[in-house]
Design a protein around this nucleic acid. Structure first.
Lengths: 259, 259
DNA sequence: CGCTTAATTGACACCAGTCAATACCCGTGG
DNA sequence: CCACGGGTATTGACTGGTGTCAATTAAGCG
């Protein structure tokens, strides 16, 4: 984890962290709240048989670590390269006390995380792996680099590795692979390369994933909202480069996501 | 739903509700916070194929309805006969503002609900149905009528119907039935009657359910704690009758739970 | 005693996890 | 430029657990 130091307009201390580095573990008490500027974190737990499970993703604009100590074998790690802010819990508490807007934003954002957990529970329990993956792919379009193409299709650049997807959806990399290729044969998606999918038929994808009209707790747009939290973290207007970077990646047929 | 009217020492209005009656649905806006005095509520959702899924239980001493509107086909219903208090959201908000102890209790209780949801997600994704059921049975000893016997075993009186258990653990009643009888053959439990289990080997049960030393977000004891919330709701010292009722039920070989 | 509902048991099919082998990508170094 | 190696993704063969459907038993109730 590299410390990028104090940043103008950014609360706390900013860090750039590498994929798979741990920021919160269960054995050491956690004194910090972490705010995700960019990238994706994962809340995970290792099962009794050594099998890992990803219990939740923490997305840009969200916080983790405020609520509780982690129990058991749970930990929070970076799923991609991330930029995060670390704030002392007490300091954050005082801010919450003083700033009503912040409190409101924070609550709503916590609610989003809870909704996502509810969705995950529901989908693992009630959907088949292919349905879960379809839903995940459709939902990922809202919070991962996503580029509409001239021909009406769109390119989704998948930030998560195959094992991360598999462990999130409680399945295996083999099954994920079979599903993606089946979806490709059916003409619903096209596999540009393992980290980039062209969505050819979003409607069918949503139907497969049993996605209704609602948002299912995932952020509406690919970019964080103009919230009090984001303003405080100096994040507003900072995300412009993301989409164009994807463009480049797709055009040059090179991966932008860790592979 | 029968209204028991205003009660001395109990905030809001008290209701006695029958099993399977709905108190919150997704289509009508929810203006109330519900506090569970006794009984168990279930947060549920109907899947695309008509299959129901129980996403969480709300236990005595807990509240539901504060956080959010329910989305999609979600609803909250009574899983057993319940006694609940209905409080206006605004009123509850004001109380939270004024009463720091209440705020603290409320947060901790919310945290318990979140932990339970995490456990459910983990267990559905990572455990087999028999392991899930074993864990559930062991955990149920903490919040359902539970009576230690002279011979070292204990009687657990299962408040939930088979379909509720099955839908909570994302399996079927048939599988639940097979599991209970397998556990009985193995000598881990004894099926007194379909609603009463004698736990013969709690250690093995916990090992099967992969229960560690931690509490997994379930309440420690069968009785609610002496919290600010409980004091306000006039619940403290009100639960003495529960265990003895179970005793009676078991001794007379009659069900206490809805069947 | 009949009716309804819940619980149990049996037979069967099939999805998806497991294991193993292969293909692919990309870096490095000769 | 090519060979090699490490990591990731893909594909195939196989098996077992678990859902589904149907039949049977048991329990409660009027």
């Amino acid at each position: 984890m590299r410390c990028a130091g104090k940043l103008h307009g950014c609360l706390g201390r900013r860090f750039d962290i590498e994929p798979d580095s741990e920021i919160i573990s269960d054995d050491s008490p956690n004194r910090h709240v972490w705010f995700v500027r960019s990238g994706v974190l994962r809340l995970q737990r290792y099962g009794y048989n050594g099998r890992r499970q990803v219990l939740s993703l923490i997305l840009p604009g969200e916080t983790i670590g405020y609520e509780s100590e982690l129990r058991d074998g749970m930990s929070v790690e970076a799923a991609t390269s991330c930029s995060v802010c670390r704030i002392d819990k007490r300091e954050f508490d005082q801010m919450l006390d003083r700033d009503g807007d912040l409190r409101k934003d924070f609550l709503r954002q916590q609610q989003n995380q809870l909704d996502r957990l509810l969705w995950l529970t529901w989908s693992i329990g009630g959907l088949r792996p292919d349905e879960r993956f379809s839903a995940f792919l459709a939902l990922a379009c809202r919070f991962m680099p996503f580029q509409a193409q001239p021909d009406g299709s769109s390119i989704l650049s998948m930030q998560l590795s195959r094992p991360d997807i598999a462990d999130l959806l409680s399945t295996t990399v083999e099954t994920i692979s079979r599903i993606t290729h089946r979806l490709a044969r059916t003409g619903i998606i096209e596999i540009v390369d393992p980290a980039n999918f062209r969505i050819l038929d979003m409607k069918k994808l949503c139907r497969l994933g049993r996605i209704g009209s609602d948002l299912e707790g995932f952020p509406k747009g690919p970019d964080p909202l103009n919230t009090r939290l984001n303003v405080l973290m100096g994040l507003v207007g900072d995300q412009a480069g993301r989409v164009s970077r994807v463009m480049t990646a797709v055009n040059e047929r090179r991966r932008v996501a860790p592979y």
